[in-house]
Design a protein around this nucleic acid. Structure first.
Lengths: 210, 210
DNA sequence: GCGTTTGTTATACGCTTGAATAATAGGATG
DNA sequence: CATCCTATTATTCAAGCGTATAACAAACGC
């Protein structure tokens, strides 16, 4: 008896990899890390389970690739939000972008937290986090330096770093709060709080960043 | 043939529950949510797997109980850190307690993140988070009200809430940063940054909270 | 001390998991 | 149009999963 075999089409390596990574993120977002099984991911990507090991030596390596892509995506969004315009506007846009959709998004948070919880368990994940954190901090520091320079305010390198750390903390924290309990905040409350707080943290007169 | 059966001793219900919850947290911290299997947890607690269903209808309910205990523990630590003394000192201690060990601790973070990632997937976890978040925010708001009152500064209820949200965000964010990459910060850098930032956010003169 | 209760162990069940391997077919190459 | 390469499917495997159930023994009342 002639066994019928599922028809398929071959894809380029990059295409397939992207599909698999996208499917991985979908599965984690919908069912947690526990639900991101090889079979579920394969089904979501429209392939059979065995194919995964053709592209990734192990499931863990695929998870790491997915984590990397997630963080790159977030960095990309906030970075482009802060393009063009003058230093003040760039800084404001960067801050706002971090506490508004699509960054404040239940799916993004679920993914982020799932990976964060693996950081203490697996050095590979720790390295990815470290990389994206350092890059984020550097971007923020650059924005702050430009902002201070434009206003002719002298701020030492150390102070700038301290400001970046603090502002980054605030942004992360508000992002968390706003994403975990969006119903507790009125429409613009979060961005306004973020802007007003950064103003204060930088010892600017109220309304200076608006 | 006489089958030898493992000897055991009976425990009170609360004792056993606590043991099981502690074992659950240990397992999650060491091997992630994936590693927190019924068998592993039971082994860690020094009992056999079947016993778990005698105390918890389902594994998920045990996870929820563990989450609740984790958050209660954190709340407890920071709350007692802010006891006694005058309002200013209480506020400062509360802030510092949140960005120093044992709250900034790799284990705590791993646990916290593991549960956070379940919030978007399971309403039961969302409810637990909501409860602890609201309680934390209320505690902070109380501290702020007392602090402002002592200084004779008039701050509306709304302003106070906004301050509490912002300060909470900052604390959470710095806690994250400090715990995920402790080597990036010098010994006291994080608490000092936290204190200085809160001072600025509340529009206090520098050094006012020291 | 004896019987009863029930906390605890032991075992089994059906299912899913990540991974390995063999068989197949798509699609470029000549 | 035949050939070859390899991306993809299909199947298998041992291990581990959460849960259910039955047998056992520890501690307590009497």
């Amino acid at each position: 008896m002639a066994v019928t075999r599922r028809s398929y089409s071959r894809a380029t390596e990059t295409e397939r990899r992207e599909d698999l990574i996208a499917a991985t993120l979908d599965c984690i977002a919908e069912a947690g890390i526990q639900g991101a099984t090889v079979r579920q991911i394969a089904a979501r990507a429209g392939v059979t389970g065995g194919l995964i090991r053709h592209y990734f030596a192990t499931k863990d390596q695929m998870l790491q690739a997915a984590y990397r892509q997630l963080m790159d995506g977030i960095t990309e969004i906030t970075k482009t939000a802060a393009e063009g315009a003058d230093p003040k506007t760039r800084l404001r846009r960067f801050i706002v972008a971090n506490v508004t959709p699509p960054v404040t998004d239940s799916r993004t948070l679920s993914l982020w937290a799932a990976f964060i919880s693996h950081i203490p368990l697996d050095p590979a994940f720790a390295a990815i986090h470290r990389e994206s954190y350092v890059s984020f901090l550097a971007e923020l520091e650059t924005l702050l330096i430009a902002f201070f320079a434009e206003r002719g305010r002298i701020v030492s390198r150390q102070e700038c770093r301290a400001y970046a750390i603090a502002v980054n903390g605030l942004i992360d924290g508000l992002w968390l709060e706003g994403t975990l309990a969006p119903d507790l905040f009125k429409n613009e409350e979060l961005s306004e709080t973020a802007i007003a707080s950064v103003e204060a943290m930088l010892r600017l007169p109220p309304g200076e960043l608006c």
